[in-house]
Simulated assay, not measured.
Amino acid sequence: MLSQQQLATMLSLQNKMNTKVNDQWLTAGYGYLRAAMVESVEAIEHHGWKWWKAHQKDLPQLQMELVDIWHFALSACIIDYAGDIEAAANAISAQLAQSQPRVQFDGKDYTPDSQSLLDNLELMTGLCAAKRFSVPLFMHIAEQCEMSGEALYRQYVGKNVLNFFRQDHGYKEGSYIKVWHNREDNEHLVEVLATLDINSTHYSDDLYQALKHRYPN
Rank of each mutant, 00 (worst) to 15 (best):
A210Y: 08
N186D: 11
L127H: 03
A194I: 08
E146A: 09
Y156A: 00
I78V: 13
K172T: 14
M139Y: 09
A91N: 08
S99T: 15
A97D: 10
L123S: 00
A91M: 02
D58I: 05
I141K: 07
F164R: 07
L152A: 09
A73G: 04
N186E: 13
V192R: 01
P101A: 08
P101V: 08
M1C: 04
T111H: 14
D106I: 12
M124G: 04
R183P: 04
Q24R: 12
I141C: 01
H71T: 00
Y215F: 06
N90Q: 14
S175E: 08
E191R: 12
M37D: 10
A129Q: 05
D206L: 10
H55I: 04
A35L: 10
G107N: 11
K20S: 15
A97V: 04
E86A: 14
M1F: 09
E146N: 12
W51F: 13
Q63W: 03
D197H: 00
A8S: 13
D206Q: 14
I79H: 06
N18R: 08
R102T: 15
S134P: 01
S175I: 11
V161D: 05
L121P: 12
P60K: 02
I141A: 03
F105K: 05
L2H: 06
F105C: 10
F72Q: 13
F133T: 02
A43K: 05
L137W: 01
N217L: 14
L127Q: 02
N22F: 06
M139K: 02
A43S: 09
T19C: 04
P60T: 03
A94T: 10
Q63S: 06
K50A: 06
